[in-house]
Design a protein around this nucleic acid. Structure first.
Length: 684
RNA sequence: GGCGGCGUAGCUCAGUUGGUUAGAGCAUCGGAAUCAUAAUCCGAGUGUCCGGGGUUCGAAUCCCUGCGCCGCUACCA
């Protein structure tokens, strides 16, 4: 019996569409792996689905004035469809709002509770008396103590990036009702992870073959020691805490749900269960999840490592009835044209948008060539175009085309009979024989870039073979040699088409139709010469038409615009402050000053300590500009300061004044004077 | 600040346990060929392997340190 393989890709969060970063991280690598194993005849299933709970979805629902269910319905359908078009071969694509998932995850919680694995903690949390719910950090709004943004969230100020706790906010208010939150006691279940650290370490130690970026992250967490983690939240959207469990703990379950990180990975299990139901075999899921020998593989992005390598495995261990992952080949991040992706700034290539403009296989191939397998990688449209034109079209496509055209022109569209083989023929045959094992090993080791590289190398060799054999000459001089050449080229096309299925499944099916071969081939048989002489071949079609510069330029322009317009359109506040009198303005003593010394303040990422000169006066000021200016670059610079600001002590440093700078979300630039003027000069 | 990953050709990236002259693709230049989507094939040049120390007969590779990028995490009026 073949080993059972259970593959999952991270459940995409259903509050937005899928972009290239997602595909490169968790989806394409998994799909290549799965398609390969299906061709091998492995007993494999591939499970995914939408992650539909949590605060961001609630917030989005609120800003659009619709229900959370409407939000997740929208993105679940959108992403499911995009994935299908992209050729993601999930056996099942579930969703965590399903009833099965609610049952499975609350059962999971119940089992852990009955085993006494949770601890309870009662703490004060902020509560919205008007909406009668507890408020997650993100649901508290207030004035940011750092930058005075009146709409900072309780976990972070989105304007200045400062991370906050709700208590730090000035004039806190509920994001839902604007009511002033009150502190109220609430009880939550915690998973004491420290208890399982030893067990987890032992398990991880048994997997030295995991990727180094993954192991590094895990070790980092182990080193600092695992903490108790709350598994429940006060939130009206999610999987409710089972009342029977709450009762045993003497806690009111009302308004409490499983924390999204707890229920989301269980989604893998519940989706598998739904898959089994759909297959008409209720218990089939157990053969994977509850079989000690199942090879469970989670494909994720690097942001998810801690959940899939520590927290979820801990949950599975504690539960006791499930297999642990055999590998978690997390990928790093994909950048775009040299910049970080940003969904909020719309700096991304959205899958649904791509699908309307280009071929699926082009993207699959281009991404596969440059997956962030060992470090962050960069996607550029120019490279995408080059991969498509130079490799898919010119090397692979053209080899197929020249062979098929030749066969039609001179062999009546039939596979010619092979005669005696010479050394070069033998070399080609040898490559065909050895390719499946070699390429398969790479996929099995999660080295997809090597796989596609070597695959294209094979097509390169095929072209060289064609060139060196010169069938257009032997056609007259030695027809038998010519027949052998074309015979072997056709065999090569067949092998290539099978070996390329994991990465370019659509194009490959076109080839199978042209060759009149089975659409259910076997990976290992790609190493055999199975085309029969005399077999009729259909008319070829161009598999990959070139992508013109214009199409690419449009996309590049779009991104450039997204990048610049987002900085200018989003940040400058439309609403200006209320009017002041000239007298008020005159109270500000603005001066030109010169930076004499500048140094970073230790243990701070943002602050610089500056010694400045205002005329003959020397002052020290603290400025939160370290992320935008190097201290040494400031020395000698003329800046503008508020000279009569009340002094303050910031992290133990006296600050006597404040420099002026213009800033928005991601930019900051110092104010200065256009022409040189002595320091101390007044600004009015 | 702590921890982890990374830094190699103009660009995108390989370099397995230290071992000849550090590689591939693209781009550039030259040539061959004309079956084919002006496609293919052959040849050529290019490097402070981020900087600085150290271990070693020998370092891109191991150790220390500095710098830079990315992520997690902490601190932060």
């Amino acid at each position: 019996m073949p080993e059972k393989i259970l593959v999952t890709s991270a459940l995409p969060y259903a509050n937005g569409p899928i972009h290239l970063g997602h595909l490169a991280g968790a989806y394409l690598p998994a799909d290549i792996f799965v398609r390969y194993h299906r061709l091998k005849g492995s007993d494999i299933i591939y499970i995914c689905g939408s992650d539909e709970h949590g605060v961001p979805i609630m917030l989005k629902a609120r800003t659009e004035n619709v229900s959370p269910q409407q939000i997740v319905d929208r993105y679940h359908e959108m992403n499911k469809k995009s994935f299908e078009e992209f050729g993601m071969s999930f056996d099942y694509y579930g969703r965590t709002s399903s009833t099965v998932h609610h049952e499975v995850s609350s059962d999971f919680f119940r089992t852990l509770a009955e085993k006494g694995e949770f601890i309870l903690k009662t703490e004060e949390q902020l509560y919205d008396p008007k909406a009668k719910i507890f408020l997650a950090d993100r649901f508290i709004k207030g004035t940011c103590p750092a930058c005075s943004n009146p709409d900072a969230y309780g976990d972070q100020c989105e304007k200045c990036g400062t991370s906050l706790s709700p208590k730090e906010l000035i004039n806190p208010r509920s994001a839902i009702t604007d009511a002033e939150p009150v502190a109220k006691e609430t009880t939550h279940w915690y998973l004491p992870l420290a208890k399982y650290q030893k067990q987890l370490e032992k398990w991880i130690d048994a997997h030295p073959e995991w990727k180094s970026n993954v192991l590094g992250q895990i070790q980092s967490w182990f080193k600092s020691g695992l903490n108790d983690r709350a598994v429940t939240r006060d939130l009206p959207w999610g999987v409710s805490i089972p009342e029977d469990v709450a009762k045993k703990y003497n806690v009111d379950a009302e308004g409490k749900v499983l924390y999204v990180w707890f229920d989301a990975p269980i989604g893998y299990i519940s989706a598998t269960k739904e898959w089994a139901q759909a297959k008409g075999n209720e218990n089939l899921w157990k053969e994977y999840w509850q079989n000690k020998d199942t090879r469970l593989v989670h494909f994720i992005g690097k942001d998810n490592i801690v959940f899939h390598c520590i927290i979820f495995p801990a949950m599975l261990m504690v539960h006791g009835n499930f297999v642990l992952p055999q590998n978690v080949p997390a990928n790093e991040f994909l950048n775009l044209e040299g910049n970080k992706l940003s969904t909020s700034r719309n700096y991304a290539v959205w899958l649904n948008d791509y699908l309307q403009k280009f071929e699926v296989d082009s993207l699959r191939y281009a991404l596969a060539c440059n997956l962030p397998e060992t470090k962050d990688a960069d996607f550029s449209w120019k490279e995408f175009q080059a991969r498509h034109n130079n490799e898919l079209a010119d090397i692979l496509g053209n080899f197929i085309n020249r062979t098929l055209i030749f066969a039609h022109k001179y062999f009546k569209g039939k596979v010619p009979e092979a005669g005696q083989t010479d050394n070069l023929d033998k070399e080609l045959i040898d490559k065909i024989i050895h390719a499946p094992a070699a390429l398969g090993k790479l996929i099995d080791n999660y080295q997809n870039r090597f796989y596609v590289r070597d695959l294209m190398e094979l097509a390169r060799f095929a072209n060289k073979y064609f060139n060196d054999k010169e069938p257009w000459k032997t056609r007259n001089s030695d027809p038998q040699v010519c027949a052998t050449t074309i015979h072997l080229c056709l065999q090569m096309i067949r092998s290539l088409s099978i070996l390329a299925e994991p990465v370019i499944p659509n194009s490959v099916r076109k080839i199978w139709k042209i060759l009149n071969i089975s659409d259910n081939p076997n990976w290992n048989e790609a190493g055999q010469l199975k085309l029969q002489a005399g077999q009729q071949i259909n008319q070829p079609e161009i598999l990959f038409t070139k992508i013109e510069d214009e199409a690419i330029e449009t996309e590049i322009e779009r991104l450039k615009k997204a990048q610049t317009s987002s900085t200018s359109s989003q940040t400058p506040e439309a609403e200006l402050e209320s009017l002041i009198t000239f007298e008020t303005f005159k109270k500000l003593d603005l001066r030109v000053a010169k930076v004499i010394e500048a140094e970073a303040i230790k243990k701070s990422d943002k602050l610089l300590k500056l010694q400045i000169e205002i005329g003959h006066i020397k002052r020290q000021i603290i400025a939160g500009i370290a992320q935008h200016y190097q201290p040494e670059d400031l020395i000698g610079k003329k800046i503008i300061v508020v000279a009569n600001l009340q002094p303050a002590v910031i992290r133990g440093n006296q600050s006597e004044g404040m420099l002026l700078a213009a800033s928005n979300e991601n930019q900051l630039t110092l104010l200065t004077v256009l022409e040189d003027i002595p320091t101390g000069s007044k600004i009015s």
